[in-house]
Measured scan of single mutants.
Amino acid sequence: HNLTITQGKLFFHYNPKLCLSEIHKMEEVSGTKGRQERNDIALKTNGDQASCENELLKFSYIRTSFDKILLRWEPYWPPDFRDLLGFMLFYKEAPYQNVTEFDGQDACGSNSWTVVDIDPPLRSNDPKSQNHPGWLMRGLKPWTQYAIFVKTLVTFSDERRTYGAKSDIIYVQTDATNPSVPLDPISVSNSSSQIILKWKPPSDPNGNITHYLVFWERQAEDSELFELDYCLKGLKLPSRTWSPPFESEDSQKHNQSEYEDSAGECCSCPKTDSQILKELEESSFRKTFEDYLHNVVFVPRKTSSGTGAEDPRPSRKRRSLGDVGNVTVAVPTVAAFPNTSSTSVPTSPEEHRPFEKVVNKESLVISGLRHFTGYRIELQACNQDTPEERCSVAAYVSARTMPEAKADDIVGPVTHEIFENNVVHLMWQEPKEPNGLIVLYEVSYRRYGDEELHLCVSRKHFALERGCRLRGLSPGNYSVRIRATSLAGNGSWTEPTYFYVTDYLDVPSNIA
């Protein structure tokens, strides 16, 4: 807008934040220059609390790290170098490059900038070799853009010569660093050979998330399962459950009422301010606690030095998902009996873990797994792929695949051998790939016309006998059925096997 004052003059007093240069501009645009008398524009009460600059400061050096910015700028000295009290560095987070010096300023003089007072450097006698002032900004957020400017702080001049310097606002972004852990990993099994893994992005990506790394490792069953005799009275049979499938998407929606109208769909109840505040506090606490764990609990591995020492970490090797089922080394339970199943799973520490690289999504279907087997899954978020990966501390989750139908069934015939004193040795093959492992066998036998009897055969007993022995049988026709019990439950009964026990007292003698 054009402003013209045809008559009258300007009068400025007691404006401590208004620089004289701005008042002189007002004289020019209003056409009143030359009308004012000496005392109409006070030299001592206008701009006496402001830094009124008329020179431009330029930054000469900028260096960044993930949490620091090192700045240096060209030296500046007023005509009387004693008038320079120091520099004021202003900075704040700036997602967009549209910041002005006066953003967030209120009537009390406060604003949204963080201000650092910096002492002037030592003055050199040689004007050509003056030290460049600077400042190291610490405690910054990774991968965050900051708006920065600097200006001088000078003393009051009796001659009211307006001098000083100020830089333009520059924008500097800190470097990326390792992201925080992925949030809320959930693993479920939808079949006997697959596990579905879902997660949420890290709360602090500290860069642009480029991919996720998912490692999985087959877990050995508890050692007590191999040692305890679950045929003993009072000892509860062990059981394991597989990871249940995901709930429906509708039930997972946030901010939804727990109660549904019987007449149909209901609208979600909005969260109160107290609920939102509580969630923010919980989120802040979780982030602080995660940072504490990362800094205190997890110790970084030592990389190899120039002395030739090897990095103890196993090298990563990509495998196809079809090879995942046989990740671990199978060892027989008892070496003397080769027909026992290889369900003991000690994992070799030198073995390469299978892994998958996930790009542009937060889910993965891990296939080719062994049925009813526990897996430990390790999830890392990465925001750099080359020249070397920059990934987060791992988040861990466990899951067990679903049982395989008929995996616990005894394959092959049940054979028998009759000894003296009416002892019958029953023999059968253990299931080759049971659900988890076989903890015991149930032997059901009966003599024709009598009630059915049951015998429990422990895992250890089966390994020693290759089956079991029935003792003290009365003469007669017998039928026997056997079924295995694994961590997933009972298998199917075998087809009945028949044998006849004679009275050993009636056996004919070869003595003449």
Score class of each variant (00 low, 15 high):
Ser284Asp: 10
Tyr478Gln: 03
Trp242Phe: 03
Thr415Tyr: 09
Arg316Gly: 05
Leu379Val: 08
Gly306Lys: 10
Asn295Cys: 15
Arg400Asn: 03
Ser315Thr: 09
Pro338Trp: 14
Tyr445Arg: 02
Val424Ser: 02
Val507Ile: 15
Ser262Gln: 08
Thr328Phe: 13
Ser283Ala: 14
Asn422Met: 06
Pro403Asp: 02
Arg447Phe: 07
Phe226Arg: 13
Leu280Ser: 05
Pro403Trp: 07
Phe289Lys: 01
Ser315Asp: 10
Val424Gly: 08
Tyr498Trp: 09
Leu225Asp: 03
Glu351Ser: 12
Cys267Gly: 02
Gln275Tyr: 04
Thr494Tyr: 04
Arg370Ile: 14
Ser363Leu: 11
Tyr292Lys: 02
Arg376Pro: 02
Cys231Pro: 01
Tyr504Trp: 11
Asn206His: 09
Pro496Arg: 13
His371Trp: 05
Asp250Gly: 05
Val214Trp: 01
His416Gly: 09
Leu321Pro: 12
Val214Asp: 00
Glu442Phe: 05
Lys287Asn: 04
Ala309Glu: 07
Lys287Arg: 09
Val331Ser: 12
Ser305Arg: 09
Ser348Arg: 12
Glu389Lys: 06
Val414Gly: 02
Gly264Glu: 11
Leu277Gln: 03
Leu232Val: 08
Gly308Glu: 13
Val345Phe: 05
Ala405Leu: 12
Asn339Asp: 12
Gly374Pro: 10
Gln380Cys: 14
Gln219Trp: 07
Val457Cys: 08
Asn295His: 02
Gly325Asp: 15
Gly325Glu: 09
Ser243Trp: 11
Ser239Ile: 07
Val414Lys: 01
Asn360Met: 09
Ile482Thr: 03
Phe372Met: 05
Ile377Arg: 00
Thr373Ser: 08
Glu221Phe: 13
Glu260His: 12
Glu433Tyr: 12
Glu442Gln: 04
Gly467Val: 08
Lys317Thr: 09
Cys269Gln: 02
Thr497His: 05
Asp250Thr: 12
Pro354Gln: 11
Ser342Trp: 03
Met427Ile: 14
Val501Gln: 05
Pro314Arg: 06
Asp408Leu: 04
Cys391Pro: 01
Lys271Met: 07
Val329Met: 11
Glu310Lys: 03
Leu455Val: 08
Ser315Arg: 11
Leu437Ser: 00
Ala381Trp: 00
Tyr259Gln: 07
Ser283Gly: 06
Ser342Gln: 07
Arg459Tyr: 03
Arg483Asn: 14
Thr494Arg: 03
Arg318Leu: 07
Phe289Thr: 02
Pro312Met: 09
Thr502Gly: 09
Lys361Arg: 06
Thr340Asn: 12
Thr241Glu: 06
Ser320Asn: 05
Gly234Val: 09
Cys267His: 06
Val501Gly: 01
